[in-house]
Amino acid sequence: MDRLKDKVAIVFGAGPNIGGTIAHFLAREGAKVCVSDVKEEAATATAEFIIGRGWKAMGMVGDARNDDDVKRIVAKTVEQYGRLDVVVNMAGRVHWDDVLGMQLDDWNDSVASFATAGLLTTQHAARAMLACGSQGSIIHLLSTAAHFGEADGAAYCAAKAALLNFARSAAMDLSHHGIRVNTVTPCSMEHQLWTTMRDEMFDPDWRQPERRGFYSRQEYLDQLPLRRFPRAADLAWATVFLASDESSCMTGADLPVDAGLRHKYPTWTPGSHDPRHINDYARATRVTRYGEEQELLTDLLGDPIERS
């Protein structure tokens, strides 16, 4: 439980799923953590959760796309804890539309959410690390969208791909300072079963949306060699590793946490050889907050619809 003892970390994006779980695991491994979010309630709730378990944390409101906000959050963290060793950036907003219909404001917001936020968090973190003599670790959360083209996902794919190659370039720029920059790539997450994609399983009148790039949870599950979606804890453990001295010779690297999705042969469909229905998967799924299991999903949302 001391893999990050005496280290100080900032997590940009701190809801109870991915960001909050990462912050929780960093704190559990000994780091003092600042959790930041554009929503005050999210930052406060995550900080209070960590403090309630006996670890050190503080919450701050801020937008990772805003230079002044990022600078203020980094400065306050160093003022509070005396140094900075780890920064995790997973902030960002997603806009879906095809190329012909993409609005310029949505495009610009996507680029700002990921590529610009990546620049600002890296820039201010690295400056603070240099000032306090820390050979720190900067970690950006990506998506399989950074590696593939997706229908209706031009803005998201482009912005995530920009963040991927930004991180690689930043790793080269900062290497002679001993500051490492790496990325973690998840695919569609398990918590989306009870958030953005719940209607597919729990609404008997659900119909697939018209959007061309849309896929069902069943179709996605059938592409995963490990036959499960990544959980927030899976990303948190990967982040802990990249934040710790265990990865001290790694920079410019991307860790795929995607149940094998990115490395399977494209035409191989794992679900054809190991079928599992999404409703059965959902019945066995537990809701998690900050990486801790809550009630069974079916206890919260009712019994999933039966197979047709």
Rank of each mutant, 00 (worst) to 15 (best):
M90T: 15
A91P: 02
G92R: 05
G92K: 05
V94Q: 12
V94D: 14
V94G: 01
V94W: 01
V94R: 06
H95K: 10
H95N: 10
W96A: 08
W96C: 02
W96N: 07
D97Y: 02
D97I: 01
D98V: 11
D98E: 02
V99F: 03
V99G: 00
V99S: 09
L100D: 15
G101V: 06
G101M: 06
G101T: 10
M102H: 08
Q103F: 02
L104K: 13
D105I: 12
D105M: 05
D105G: 04
D105E: 13
D106N: 14
W107Y: 05
N108F: 11
S110N: 10
S110P: 03
V111C: 10
V111F: 10
V111R: 03
V111W: 09
A112T: 09
A112M: 08
A112Q: 13
S113M: 08
F114T: 04
F114G: 08
F114Y: 15
F114I: 04
F114S: 07
F114L: 04
T116P: 01
T116K: 15
A117S: 15
G118F: 13
G118L: 05
L119K: 04
L119S: 02
L119R: 05
L120V: 10
L120I: 12
T121R: 05
T121E: 11
T121H: 14
T121M: 10
T122I: 05
T122L: 08
Q123G: 00
H124I: 00
H124Y: 15
H124E: 03
A125F: 06
A126N: 03
R127F: 07
R127T: 12
R127Q: 13
R127V: 09
A128E: 00
A128Q: 01
M129E: 00
M129W: 12
L130P: 01
L130G: 06
L130V: 11
L130K: 15
L130S: 10
L130A: 12
A131Y: 00
C132L: 02
C132G: 09
C132M: 11
